[in-house]
């Protein structure tokens, strides 16, 4: 099967995104727990664009007349999965942030009580 222009576009975009993710990992701009899902999301479209025939068959099986639409759908689902994962991470951070604020406020009250100091934060 001849390589179609959209395959080149998807592969190039995917590789560019993967390169960007790798550079951000190298610079420690993305934390350890978060780089793996980003790598998966960035490299998956590239892999899918290399072996287009199984995806084309799957598209036909699913009744999708325009095969690249399956790639778009897969990309969208991956993005949704990534957003869901990030929501879980943010929720954890919110919970930890709240606990830290509570602990800090309690500790400050104890210090102020012990030293007789009174400050406003």
């Amino acid at each position: 099967m001849a390589i179609r222009p959209f395959q080149i576009f998807v592969a190039a975009s995917s590789l560019a995104l993967t390169a960007l993710v790798l550079e951000l990992i190298r610079r420690r701009k993305i934390k350890d727990e978060l780089w793996l899902p980003w790598l998966i999301v960035s490299i998956t479209p590239f892999v899918m664009s290399l072996w287009i025939s199984p995806w084309a068959e799957l598209a036909h099986l699913l009744g999708i007349a325009y095969e690249p639409a399956l790639l778009l759908m897969a990309g969208l689902l991956l993005c949704l999965a990534l957003i869901l994962y990030l929501t879980v991470v943010v929720s954890t951070l919110m919970r930890q942030n709240l606990r830290l604020a509570q602990e800090m406020a309690l500790l400050r009250e104890r210090i102020e009580s012990a030293t007789g100091a009174r400050s406003r934060g």
Partner: peptide, 14 residues
């Protein structure tokens, strides 16, 4: 009374 000051608005439950 004792006063515990949360550093920012955390919500009534918190």
């Amino acid at each position: 009374a004792r006063v515990v000051r949360l550093p920012f608005n955390c919500g009534i439950g918190a």
